[in-house]
């Protein structure tokens, strides 16, 4: 038959196939967009490498990160300002105590990742609980709800009013210097961000028509909050969590740099390594540059992925 009818046949075939398909949820669609975003691919690749290094680092490191080979062999005399740089055996040279810098970088990745992830989780959990309760109370709870919301948010405002580094320093000083302290301090600092973000998103959602629709269906308020409002408010929180991972790593490094991190330098951590390097900046700037590069690149990876996720989850923001 004619070309025209052929075309129509093909079209109906195509649409028939489409009808068989499953529905595409917003999450699936967001993931599709994410896969097409170059910055998401770059960010994810950086993070993949970082995570792999963090996991297998201790096994592939050529030397023990605590072995002071350089001093034993008499090559490193940091008192006299002699710290040899890169060589065939030691790719990044020695640190001030004669330890292999490359091995320390590899092993230190795990600590850095751990600090970032755990402190973000602390901030996310506490922040989401406070923000979630406040948001649900303000949106659906009537007079009592507004009161609960007010109390919680004023508490968050107090946290927000303190400079974050000062807050972290005082928490760290209060609990004593250790890696756990750094995680708690960095985590708590990010609590207000998550709380406010989730509450705001939930408030915006609870004014929506579909919440009214659910109410008119006879769904309980608790169910509405959990099945409608929270899932629809999560996107900005997820994005913020990814971006916070980057700042958490930097902040943890800053706290370590200020001497509030793990005092036991046998466990390498990029922030501590950076702090240790400050006395030898003039002799071997590499001691500071390599850990700093590690921190910057990792933070960049999280930021790239976070920004890409923001665009994927909310296509309206795309330029």
């Amino acid at each position: 038959m004619s070309v025209k009818t052929d075309k129509i046949d093909r079209l109906s075939e195509l649409s028939a196939v489409k009808q068989e398909e499953q529905g595409v949820s917003l999450w699936t669609e967001a993931f599709r967009r994410l896969r097409r975003s170059p910055s998401a691919i770059i960010g994810a690749s950086i993070l993949l490498i970082f995570v792999i290094v963090a996991i297998i680092g201790p096994w592939v490191a050529p030397y023990s990160p605590t072995d002071t080979i350089g001093i034993r062999e008499g090559v490193v005399k940091s008192g006299q300002g002699i710290i040899p740089g890169a060589s065939a055996e030691h790719w990044l040279g020695y640190d001030h105590q004669g330890r292999d810098l490359f091995s320390r970088m590899l092993v230190g990745a795990r600590q850095t990742l751990l600090v970032g992830v755990i402190s973000t989780l602390i901030g996310l959990t506490i922040g989401a609980i406070i923000g979630g309760i406040a948001g649900a109370a303000a949106g659906l709870g009537g007079r009592v709800g507004r009161w609960v919301d007010n109390v919680l948010m004023r508490f968050v405002d107090i946290m927000l009013a303190l400079p974050s580094l000062l807050l972290a320093v005082s928490i760290a000083a209060l609990l004593g210097a250790s890696l756990t302290t750094v995680m708690i301090a960095v985590g708590l600092v990010s609590v207000p961000i998550f709380a406010r973000l989730l509450r705001g998103a939930m408030l915006a959602q609870s004014g929506g028509d579909y919440v009214l629709a659910a109410t008119s269906l006879g769904v309980t308020r608790r169910r509405i909050a959990l099945t409608h409002i929270v899932p629809n408010s999560l996107a900005p929180v997820i994005v913020q969590a990814t971006l916070t991972l980057a700042t958490a790593i930097i902040e943890a490094a800053a706290l370590s740099f200020l001497g509030l991190g793990n005092p036991d330098s046998s466990v390498p951590e990029w922030g501590v390594m950076l702090a240790d390097a400050q006395s030898y900046l003039g002799i071997r700037p590499g001691l500071a540059i390599y850990p700093a590069l590690g921190i910057i690149i990792t933070a960049l990876g999280f930021t790239l992925l976070g920004e890409a996720m923001r665009e994927a989850l909310d296509p309206k923001l795309r330029k």
Partner: peptide, 24 residues
């Protein structure tokens, strides 16, 4: 709440009155 079964509502904007994360 149990009375609500007997009185339902249809909304003006069919997009905003349906939860975008729920399937039919």
């Amino acid at each position: 709440r149990s009375m609500r079964r007997r009185m339902q509502m249809i909304f003006q904007d069919p997009m905003s009155s349906l939860d975008p994360r729920q399937n039919v």
